[in-house]
């Protein structure tokens, strides 16, 4: 694990390595947290809403909306996690046709 001298010299930042790299590390960590928090929250909200929808009889959903959900029922509680895992992590942020408003 030896770095070429110019590279090592660069990372030393003229003796200020601790302050410079700490600053950039903190910024990176906080920005990453800011991205992850709403992405995870959106997934949770959608999962909660999906669970809620399964337990409330909703005439608005119509026949086509109800049937597949019922078909999932034999799998019991696992149906929920299945519905979530089918949406990959990135799906929340991508534009998918599901996002279109009804009608």
């Amino acid at each position: 694990m030896t770095m070429p001298e110019p590279v090592a010299e660069y990372f030393r930042m003229g003796g200020y390595a601790f302050y410079v790299w700490c600053s950039y590390a903190v910024v990176l960590a906080v920005l990453a947290f800011n991205l992850a928090a709403p992405a995870l929250r959106l997934r949770r909200v959608r999962r909660d809403l999906a669970r809620q929808a399964r337990f409330t009889e909703d005439p608005d959903l119509g026949q086509d909306g109800d049937d597949p959900l019922d078909a999932d029922d034999p799998s019991g509680g696992l149906a929920d996690t299945g519905a979530v895992s089918r949406a990959p992590a990135g799906a929340d942020r991508r534009d998918d046709p599901r996002d279109e408003p009804p009608r």
Binding site: L49, A53, G65, L69, A83, R98, P101, P102
Partner: peptide, 19 residues
């Protein structure tokens, strides 16, 4: 999504996702 959780469009959205 949370504020409109009872609105028709959210229900339809979730339903379409589940199906």
């Amino acid at each position: 999504l949370e504020r409109e959780r009872n609105a028709g469009w959210v229900r339809a959205l979730i339903a379409r996702e589940g199906s």
